[in-house]
Structures are given as structure tokens and as C-alpha cells.
Amino acid sequence: MSEKIQFVERQQLKEKPDPKDLGFGEHFTDYMLSFQYDADKGWHDLKIVPYGSIEISPAAQALHYGQAVFEGLKAYKHDGEVDLFRPSQNFKRINNSLERLEMPKVDEELLLEGLKQLVDVERDWVPEGDGQSLYIRPFVFATEGVLGVRPAKSYQMLIILSPSGNYYGGESLTPTKIYVEDEYVRAVRGGVGFAKVAGNYAASLKSQTNAAEEGYDQVLWLDGVERKYIEEVGSMNIFFVENGKIVTPELNGSILPGITRKTVIELAQKLGYEVETRHVSIDELFEAYDKGELTEVFGTGTAAVISPVGKLKYEDREIVINNNETGEITQKLYDNYVGIQSGKLDDPEGWRVVVPRYE
């Protein structure tokens, strides 16, 4: 272990779950990374400690005023090695989220080193089955026990690990059904839509429940001002294929700048596809469908990776995209993306980061 990172060994290791029945985010490894912040000390006591419950004040400001941010990334195993995928992008984004909520930023290089050491300790937990990975959840929350509406003076950061299967269950590229929300909104420009903060997801749950009751998997959000421009899905950025061109909503301050989104755009361009980022209205989308120009829809996100959309409902109309089957472009992007992640394809951009074996 590095001198900077302490390691606290647990007395008894857990029994690992059956790889055939992992689910998503249901099982957790033996250890987690812990980091503390106090205004007079800064960030301190970076440790790898046994996974377990934590003690928190009932007056902790995260519980009352929502100072909480998180990230999500994955580790993959192939040929006896374990890789992370573009992890520096996640730590860069968590700092952007922390800044927006007036929370102290973290040392990105130190956290990446800590994550590598944590994953190395837990490398036997990384599953190797199709669509499986070790899901990694870093998060930061305010712990100061004061009921004052101001930035807290103490925080805790944890990184927990969860061996997981496909996000939606079943086959990796089974098309999903999306419900377009036309009553509630998720975020507005000037707010926190671009940050990965806990409250964004709490605000989405009512709509998610409504969508599930109607038989849909996810919610597609429209902009919070005009209620007509497409923004993102609850757990994914969204892409459309119109006349062979890949189109996705531009980042405008109320859309999360997804790392998978960024990678898919770069990958699509390298594969020779034209990619356009711009405003996309829901009316335009349905008009393109009626003209036969909308041929594929897919979402991108760390958990779901690339997920085709087979059905889309807006108001009283449902459309079926590509006969509810995975499109050619979606499949090609998925095969190349997962191929690079899994080590089956070359990685000329250096997106994979090998987790070293520490003594």
C-alpha cells in the first residue's frame, strides 16, 4: 500500500454472490474507500476500511439540505487483468458537481490512486461474465450536524463497490420502452442539471413510478422552460439516428455531461459517422418518424452502457422504432464500445486504465 493510504483489514471476508444472480447494485464487496473533510484540516484520513454501516448525526446537513453528490464507473476483468474505463473523467466531473453545491473539491490524482488500490484489494470480486462488471460508486455528503442553511464545514467521501450484471437485466441489448414526461421537469439552466447531485434523482422518482405503472422502463425529460426540447433520460443521455446522422441534445447546463455520451460521440466520429449536437424538439422527433427518417434511438450511460430504445410514448401516441429491434448503428457502437472496455479490441486512445497489483 502507498504510504498515503491506510488499510484496515476486516476480520472475516464475505461469501461472494453467485455470478449468475448478481442483479445491479445489490451486493457489495468487503472493503470501501473512506475520506474525511474538516474545514480546519482539509481532506484527511484516506483509508481502505471494511464495508459497513456508518454513524451520522441526525442533524447532518446532507439529510436536510441535500449537499450530496455521486459518480458511477466500472471495472472490468479480462485476461487476468482488471481495467478501469476513463476514471479521470469521473473525478473531474465529481469536482464540477462539488463546486456547484459549494462543497470542497478532492485531489483527483490521489483519489484515482486510492481507487486503484481499493479495486486491487477487491479484484477477486470483479465478475467476468457477459455484461458483468464491478460497479464503482464514489459519493460525498455533508456530515456537519448543524441546522443552518449554509455550506457544511465537514464532509465524508466513500467509494463502494458492487459486482453487477446488466442494468436492465436479461440480454444486454434488449430494447427499452421510454415515456416522455410532459408534466414534471427535471432541471433548468442555471440549476444543478449538469451536476450529478442526489436531488436530481429524487426529483425524477415520481415520474419514474408513473412511467412504470404504464409499462415503460424509463422517463425522457423535456426542457423545463418551453417543455418541448428533449434533454435526457433518467439514467442515460439520449441519441437519435435521422437519415444516417447521429443526433443528440447539446449540453446546455441542464443536461448531465455523460462520460459514456462523450465517449460514444468520439467513437462514432472515428467510425465515420456524422454526429450533430443541437436542440432537438419532441415535435421534430415525431415528424422525422412520420417521414421515415427516424431509424434508431438509443441511450448511453455508465450503468446501461448503450441501450436501444424500441418504443417511445408522448402524450397519447406511442411509436415503435426499428420494429422494436436493435438498429445497425446502435449495435456497431455497442460492439466497439464494449470491445474496447473488455480488452477484446485495441484501445488507441488509452481509455482503459490497468489496475496494478500492489505488494
Rank of each mutant, 00 (worst) to 15 (best):
E128P: 01
K206Q: 15
T209S: 14
T209R: 14
T174Y: 06
E284C: 05
G191N: 02
W125H: 03
E232L: 04
P50A: 15
K47T: 14
L110M: 14
I265T: 06
G350P: 10
M32T: 01
L285C: 09
P17Y: 01
Y179T: 00
G169T: 06
Y179L: 12
L312E: 01
V355S: 00
E359I: 04
R93L: 03
T209Y: 13
H78M: 11
D38V: 04
E122C: 11
E99A: 12
V241N: 02
E181S: 08
V106N: 01
G23D: 00
E183D: 09
Y184Q: 08
I306K: 08
E122A: 07
Y289F: 14
L158E: 07
E128I: 03
E55F: 10
I160S: 10
S57F: 08
H279A: 12
Y184F: 08
I230W: 05
E113A: 06
A303Q: 13
R352V: 09
G190T: 01
P249K: 08
P50D: 12
L173I: 07
A288S: 14
A68G: 13
K270R: 14
L285H: 06
I265M: 04
K16Y: 00
I306D: 07
Q61P: 11
I238N: 03
R10Y: 00
Q208L: 15
G148I: 15
R186Y: 02
T176C: 10
V69A: 12
L251M: 07
Y76D: 13
T248G: 13
T295I: 04
L256W: 09
P249R: 08
I329Q: 05
R93M: 09
S88V: 12
S162L: 03
D335P: 00
V219H: 03
S172D: 06
L46P: 07
T260A: 11
E318T: 15
F194A: 13
L98F: 03
Y51V: 14
P127A: 05
R357D: 15
E109K: 10
R137I: 08
I259D: 03
D182N: 12
I282N: 06
F194M: 15
G215Y: 13
A202K: 01
D130L: 10
S97N: 08
E26S: 05
L220R: 00
F194Y: 14
L118M: 07
L267I: 14
Q218G: 05
V146C: 10
I306G: 04
L110A: 09
F85V: 10
F298Q: 00
E171V: 07
K311A: 08
L285P: 02
K14S: 12
S162C: 07
N322D: 09
N324C: 12
N336M: 11
A142I: 11
V180Q: 06
V219Q: 00
V106D: 02
V247K: 10
T209A: 13
V320D: 10
K206I: 15
V146L: 13
S164K: 01
Q208N: 14
P138Y: 10
G301F: 00
G52K: 12
L118R: 02
F239D: 01
S57C: 12
G169A: 08
N324F: 14
E213A: 11
L256H: 06
L98G: 05
L111Y: 07
